[in-house]
Design a protein around this nucleic acid. Structure first.
Lengths: 141, 141
DNA sequence: TATTGTTATACTCTATAACTATA
DNA sequence: TATAGTTATAGAGTATAACAATA
């Protein structure tokens, strides 16, 4: 009587693992990893972000963000410059190369997400909305 | 224009993190962690399992399983004994304490999952089924 | 004093390789 | 030889503490 495969924890974990495996494979040709893609996305913002603000949005540590920005900067995808208004902060912005790569990677990631959700048929948007609803409810503790 | 919070990867990750936080909190009074709960569940099987078979079912490494069984055995929740039919193997079975604790922890975990899915309303079973469908589709590569 | 970015360090989780005892 | 369990070790990934520059 093994029911561990029906437990919600198992399902959530393995859905996430499956998604991760797919997205890493799809992004590999662009020379970035899944979490680097997420960092590029958050810095591709109308209002320029400091490293710490970006880290807060992704729920990662600010020291972890240092390593991500290091990696992306060495690939010439982002640039650091001091914020003139507060020179303790770095404003991180995408380079032209970074914007180009992000556009292509986003197309590839969208296609991968479409394939990932394909088994659900036409109402896969409902599934995505359910995930958002759960997270939103949980954020209110 | 930050859309990272709408990406599927963000949603899956944070839904899993929210679930994990909830289940750890709910299981803490029983002195076990979420993954120990999963290990207890898989060993609570009609047919006795070796450590390696259990590890395969949970998709964890056999060396990782050693540590889990060590921890659960030190808590007197499971027992190792050599398989008479093949003495290289350990048959791991729940003690009476282990069965009692698993029953209580399962009730608590069920209640936590109910709360976790509550924001979805009456058709939360559809969400769970969607997760299972995605995983099943992905397992076929 | 407080905060941002940074570095050094430590801790958790997991996997790889090698050992043992059995087969 | 091959396999189950074990141990030692190493590699990610992440977090904590301390420091420099700036506020």
């Amino acid at each position: 009587m093994s029911n561990h495969r029906e437990r919600l924890g198992y399902l959530l974990k393995h859905a996430y693992l499956a998604y991760t495996a797919l997205i890493e494979q799809v992004l590999a040709p662009y020379g970035i990893e899944g979490r680097e893609f997420a960092v590029l996305l958050v810095f591709d913002d109308a209002v320029p972000l400091s490293q710490q603000e970006a880290a807060r949005r992704l729920t990662i540590d600010r020291t972890t963000m240092v390593a991500f920005v290091d990696a992306l900067e060495s690939k010439r995808l982002v640039e650091r410059r001091p914020d003139p208004a507060d020179r303790r902060r770095n404003i991180v912005s995408l380079t032209d190369d970074g914007r180009r790569l992000l556009a292509e990677a986003t197309t590839a990631a969208d296609e991968a997400e479409r394939r990932f959700l394909a088994p659900l048929g036409p109402d896969s948007t409902r599934f995505t909305a359910d995930l958002a609803r759960i997270i939103e409810a949980f954020e209110g503790h």
